[in-house]
Nucleic acid binder design. Structure first.
Length: 421
DNA sequence: TCTGGGGTCCTAGGACCC
DNA sequence: TCTGGGGTCCTAGGACCC
């Protein structure tokens, strides 16, 4: 049986989500901003064409926004994750083995589908997702995941050929032609550093990279570079995907305003710890370690810089908020230094494992009570948007940040359904 | 003064992804 | 004035062991 993978990739995903409920956004430039409306994290094709780049700070593109009438949105992750799960449900309905790779991408196994039938299948998936959910997608297939990703990129970049590239089964020489169209920095797994290095050796296209010597790649780019090379040559390296357990779980935020006060910082760190604990319980997990970090603004070198972190262990595994908050605050006190303007902080849980393997506490009764308390609080918070907090937590909404341009929760809150006049 | 060989484990930092 | 958040994996070097 021939190995073959499909890759479904949603086009301009966050923007497309906003467009479902607001058709006036179609055909006009749209951007979606990060937390605190800091920088651009998604762009419509029109915004890309204007030259708005990924990660541009909002304040720096204000004149372009005015000039071109760009529509601006704060990120609405509840909406995006809900739409994402709908897209994935539709793909899943085709009964293929699939692996959700990110919020807007999924691989699926089409080795069992004959080459002649692949084009029609891809067309069906594409239509069904666009009709049922309203999200435009690009679907490509290849012998390896890396090739599917690369071809997907080419299909999006050369939109005039996109419909031909999608769903086609290519010969080796046709693949080489596509790889020549793809610059090496756009290969999955080659980032800023490696593309700089490769360029300095005259390697510019994905095809140039494919022709490199194994030994050279191993020496300069490590084992991952070598795997990448093999994948690009059509030899699948990624082992058949199995569900991987999460290793870390984090809540980190940048602050809109600088923080220099330990009491205020303690409020934020408590909220981050408490939120991490909530995410842990939501996935039925427990953790044994917590890391706290704080840092000043590395973009502003006029202020003196400081950054530090510390990792502490709990007594055994836990998902109990007060335990986690207490340890996080202990860590904060170890690293906090007065006299600095802090810009970012976070709480990261690690040594995570599923709850059912949890070691039993020495006092089972205490554990039972804790569990019931947390379950009750989570229930209330889910319904009433996090109203129940520990006394130490910041009374403001530390998690969601400031959002000036946020759209409605069209699909996840009865009170915010789309109104049709 | 001369200063082996083989192994494990841990950690910080680097590189990448969306 | 204002620059996101949440992840993964690999590697080199140090500490330690016999």
């Amino acid at each position: 049986m021939n190995r073959a993978y499909g890759l479904l990739d949603c086009n301009n995903f966050f923007v497309s989500c906003e467009r479902i409920f607001n058709p006036s956004l179609k055909g006009v430039p749209v951007v979606v901003l990060s937390n605190n409306d800091g920088c651009v994290v998604a762009r419509s094709q029109e915004a890309k064409d204007i030259g708005i780049s990924m990660g541009s700070p909002h304040f720096r593109i204000k004149s372009e926004i005015r000039k071109w009438g760009i529509k601006v949105f704060s990120s609405n992750f509840s909406l995006y994750t809900d739409i994402s799960s709908r897209v994935m449900d539709v793909l899943n309905s085709f009964g293929l083995n699939m692996e959700i790779y990110s919020v807007d991408e999924a691989f699926f196994d089409i080795g069992c589908i004959s080459e002649e039938k692949r084009g029609a299948l891809i067309e069906m998936i594409k239509c069904k997702v666009e009709r049922w959910v309203g999200i435009p997608v690009t679907i490509t297939t290849a012998k390896t995941k890396t090739l599917a990703k690369t071809i997907n990129h080419v299909a999006k970049k050369y939109r005039e050929y996109g419909s031909i590239i999608e769903g086609s089964v290519f010969s080796d020489s046709e693949i080489d032609a596509l790889l020549k169209l793809c610059s090496v920095k756009d290969v999955w797994g080659i980032g800023f550093r490696y593309s700089f290095l490769l360029n300095s050796f005259g390697v510019r296209s994905a095809y140039n990279f494919k022709c490199l010597d194994n030994g050279w790649v191993r020496r300069n780019m490590g084992i991952n570079g070598l795997r990448l090379l093999q994948e690009l040559r059509g030899f699948p390296i990624h082992i058949a995907s199995s569900y991987k357990e999460k290793r870390t779980l984090a809540t980190t935020r940048s602050f809109k305003k600088y923080i220099s006060d330990l009491v205020l910082m303690s409020g934020y760190v408590s909220s981050f710890a408490s939120h991490s604990a909530f995410k842990l319980r939501r996935e039925n997990l427990v953790a044994r370690e917590v890391t706290v970090f704080i840092r000043t603004n590395s973009h502003n070198l006029r202020y003196k810089q400081y950054s530090n972190s510390v990792t502490l262990q709990f007594d055994g595994y836990t998902s109990f908020s007060p335990d986690i908050v207490k340890k996080a605050l202990e860590g904060l006190r170890m690293i906090f230094k007065p006299g600095y303007l802090y810009k970012k902080a976070g709480v990261i849980l690690s040594e995570i494992r599923p709850l059912d393997k949890e070691q039993t506490y020495m006092f089972p009764s205490r554990k039972m009570v804790n569990k019931d308390v947390m379950r009750a609080i989570d229930k209330v918070n889910l319904k009433w948007n996090g109203v129940v907090k520990l006394g130490i937590e910041n009374p403001l909404d530390s998690i969601n940040g400031e959002k000036e341009f946020v759209s409605q929760l069209y699909t996840t809150d009865w009170r915010q359904l789309l109104t049709v006049s």
